[in-house]
Amino acid sequence: MSNISSTFNRLRKNSEGALIAYVTGGDPSPKYTPKIVKALVEGGVDIVEIGIPFSDPIADGPVIQASDVRALSAGTTPTMVLNIVRELKKTIETPIVLLTYYNIIFRKGVGRFLEEASKSSVDGIIVADLPVEEASEYKEYAEEKGIDTIFLAAPSTSSERLEKIVNMDSGFLYLISVFGVTGMRDHVAQLTIQTLKRIRQYTVNRIPLAVGFGISKPDHVRTIISYGAEGAIVGSAFVKIIEENQNDLPILLDRLTKYAREMKEATKLIS
């Protein structure tokens, strides 16, 4: 069983949802990333997503776009992010998932990228612009290397597509909660709850379902967990903390840990 699956199993037994935190690798500089990840883990984050920055992140809103710019300006490369993960995995057991765009993988060569990811003990990969139709080669290599392939579902995804997606998916399914790009939002939309209910019918007892895009408050986490999500993915809110405190590392790390702790508390709702 993969590290991600056993994490969900453990949490399920404790009646908890997973808190999944996203940060962009190399933001604001590659040397910060290991410290940032450790601060998140200390705050109780169950799974860490590390983004490999891309020059043209079409699925991302302004906050994560800005983090890509900071990371790239600091000279971050895909190899650096893979090395950071390898070092981190020597000291933490928390599953680490890479999130990126397909050209980053394609440019290195799909086989070589997964080989290197495997050597870095990467637990799973999410590719924002790789739908199941284009994923057969990638899936094959990932399976061979024992890396989970986390696909996405959206409010527009039909039941037919969902069946295909769930079949190719492993680790957890990433549910995009709204029509739009990543970014913080005030409320959990009615559409999110409807979509969650609909999609959960296909995932229940098959694969954990985690909800992302717009989740930024403890209340949001409680709402989606109460409607059956097994994980809450929080990205822009963490990245915003990095942006606002990039010049003061101790305060930055402290705020990340505190915010993570607050959000983690909200996942412990399952009765």
């Binding site: 079409i58 612009d129 696909f151 527009s156």
Partner: peptide, 12 residues
């Protein structure tokens, strides 16, 4: 060619 698009756009 192909369709390397975010899932939200695939149905569209």
């Amino acid at each position: 060619g192909g369709k390397f698009a975010p899932e939200t756009l695939m149905p569209a």
